[in-house]
Design a protein around this nucleic acid. Structure first.
Lengths: 131, 131
DNA sequence: CCACCGGGTGACGTTAACGTAAGCTTGTGA
DNA sequence: TCACAAGCTTACGTTAACGTCACCCGGTGG
């Protein structure tokens, strides 16, 4: 009921984003602020969506993916089905993240091994100089 | 001595890259194939560099960074200093990769938690339907 | 009156690592 | 000789998520 509306600047401060970002999200149809004349006014709904968007970004969802998920919730009905779909998307993302982490771990281990080799080689320089 | 030279296609097959990639690397001054008229010929040296480049990519080095590292080894002298610098660069990369993995791990844990919450919520739907 | 501030609207720039397409040459087998 | 394949060069396209710039508008304090 008491949707206190925020200006773009207040939103930026609250969520630590730039005005450009909010306008950009609006252009991408992720959020739909009201207008007071020219000025954008962001209500509870937009804040909720933005929060989800930023969370999604953290999980590696692309903006377009988030838009689709958010739109699911906009149609308001069939809650269960929506939740299922969202969970499926999330599970796929999760699997991708785990894969990515595994690859990273491999690369880390390999790089460490290379560094060890290099350290040995460097030691031979030291010994050569000590003769 | 016996630099057997490879054509661009042979290189592509050997390293699993496209011709475009090799020409691109050349334009970026990462490799320097000889020319037989128009045709590029890749020798031992270029193969070595390409191998390092692809390794570096795996570790997340940018091409420009790789170029600088490779150039270090081109001047041929002061081996020890070169090795040191390369190791320093590698250590920084390693630290960045570890940081990145930690962040990813956090995000993974968070997403898992969210999924668990969602699963609970979904269960309430099931119970509601069972009444 | 005027500078300034907050906000708004395009439109173009940025970054990385190539992909893609057009059109030219050169070599080769039928 | 002709067509075809492989290479070559040049140049523009792609992707994501904004940043930057130039310019406009309306209200306000001095």
């Amino acid at each position: 009921m008491d949707d206190d509306y925020l200006t773009i600047r207040q939103m930026c401060d609250a969520f630590d984003v730039t005005p450009r970002t909010l306008r950009f999200y609006e252009a991408k149809e992720l959020i739909f602020p009201l207008r007071d004349g020219q000025k954008r006014l962001y209500g509870r709904r937009d804040r909720g969506r933005l929060k989800l968007i930023l969370q999604g970004k953290r999980f590696g969802f692309a903006l377009e993916e988030m838009r689709q998920l958010l739109n699911l919730y906009d149609r308001g009905d069939a809650q269960e089905e929506q939740l299922r779909r969202t969970m499926n998307a999330a599970r796929e993302r999760l699997a991708a993240m785990v894969r990515q982490r595994d690859e990273l771990t491999e690369a880390i281990d390999d790089l460490r091994a290379q560094l060890d080799l290099a350290a040995e080689k460097l030691a031979t320089f030291g010994r050569a100089a000590a003769e």
